[in-house]
Amino acid sequence: MAHISELFDSPVAIMDGGMGTTLETFYSKSISNTPLWSANVIMEDPEAVINAHLAFLRAGAKVILTATYQCAFETFERAGYSKDEASRVWKTGVALANEARSRFLKEYSKRGPQPKIRVALSIGPFGATPVPTQEFDGFYPPPYGPQAFPGEGLDGRNSFLPGEQAKEEEATQALAEFHLQRLKVYISDPETWAMIDCLAFETVPVVREVAAIRRAIRGLQEEYGENAMKPWWICNVFPFGKLPERHSSPREVIRAALGGTNLPRPSAVGINCCGVEFMGDISAEMAEEIGSIESTGKAPWLILYPNGGDVYDTILRQWKKGRDKAHWAEELNQVVQSVRANKAWGGVIVGGCCRTGPEEIEHLVGAIDY
């Protein structure tokens, strides 16, 4: 299987910003209060999706994420779509990113040698499917977890107790099937699969889902062969610097993602959808744990794309004003330089998540010390 490093000529690559919030801000699309998020715009206004991708590319991004984060059969069924209809929308999301890439490269051809532009398939966690969404709390209902969201102000648990190993194994396998079925939509269509350069599993809130994603990749390998596989990464979410799953940590995330030899390993791991102020400490703890894991070749890359600073209320489905992002790019560059100095990492892909648009990415391109 190809390593993520083979996609780039430099150990630092710039990624885009938050697709959904960019569509809201610049294209006046009502997204954050809909169950399909940015995937809704794939159907309603595909040109807006292309233009959002183009805005990030013109700002200097070399990696663009598809508008497919919310694409799961469960969310589309609630919105009234059959599985066949949903699958067509998902594949269209990939085609729109590829169209944006083609248009940008045509524009760029007049300026000199064409850059390498990569399309990453955005794959949200199971936590993106419940109502309210659970990326930031990790309350997964059975069979995916111990308990559904208990309600605002009520106690609950998002991790299994000692002695519940059998239930946790059942949950991990259920999550693996959830991800595998979605991956098959893309890989079963050769034209769509050829447009994708890498797979981006994003905003994962619980450790067992990291292990489940590795199982899903193994299932894909067994059915389609290792030569068909794309480089892939897993990013976890750490709201306010902590993994949502109780009693878990960045070290456990790394062990789940890179430990053991019986499952395929991602060639990159990372952090997304949390504040830039937490990125340095989390990535440093991850790097320390990598040193205790048996190496299997090339060092993993680190993926970093923090939010712009505002906070999303999953109950009200509204954004609340948060941290000032005036120095967001400079702060992120400081983290990148620290990461580059750490020999645990082979390289870094850096960009923005929610409430970061083309302007922030342009500032980031200017701030990064290559």
Rank of each mutant, 00 (worst) to 15 (best):
A287W: 06
G156C: 14
G219W: 02
E99F: 03
L304Y: 09
E99Y: 01
Q337T: 02
A228Y: 07
K116F: 08
G241A: 08
M1R: 07
A216M: 00
E74L: 13
F8K: 03
E209L: 01
L57C: 07
S188H: 01
L175F: 01
S109E: 14
A55L: 08
K325G: 13
A299D: 15
V131K: 08
W90M: 11
G151N: 02
K298S: 12
F238Y: 15
P358K: 10
G347L: 05
V12W: 08
C235M: 15
A67D: 11
T34N: 13
G127W: 00
V94Q: 06
C273H: 04
D45T: 03
P205R: 06
R246T: 15
I213V: 14
E222Y: 01
F149I: 07
E85R: 08
C274R: 04
V131H: 09
V94L: 06
M43W: 14
E77H: 12
A194N: 10
A216F: 00
N342K: 11
D324K: 05
P113T: 06
S30V: 00
F56N: 14
R340F: 05
Q70P: 01
M286K: 10
L121E: 03
I368N: 03
C354V: 04
K110G: 14
R214V: 02
A341C: 11
T75F: 05
E169D: 12
N227I: 11
N236A: 15
G259W: 14
M286S: 14
G225Q: 02
F73T: 10
E294W: 05
F139A: 09
P143K: 00
E252A: 06
G151V: 01
T92P: 03
L220E: 13
V131C: 06
G127H: 02
A211R: 11
T129N: 06
E99D: 07
E289C: 00
R118Q: 08
V311F: 14
S159D: 14
Y140G: 04
T314N: 13
E47K: 13
S159I: 09
L57R: 06
G163A: 00
Y69G: 10
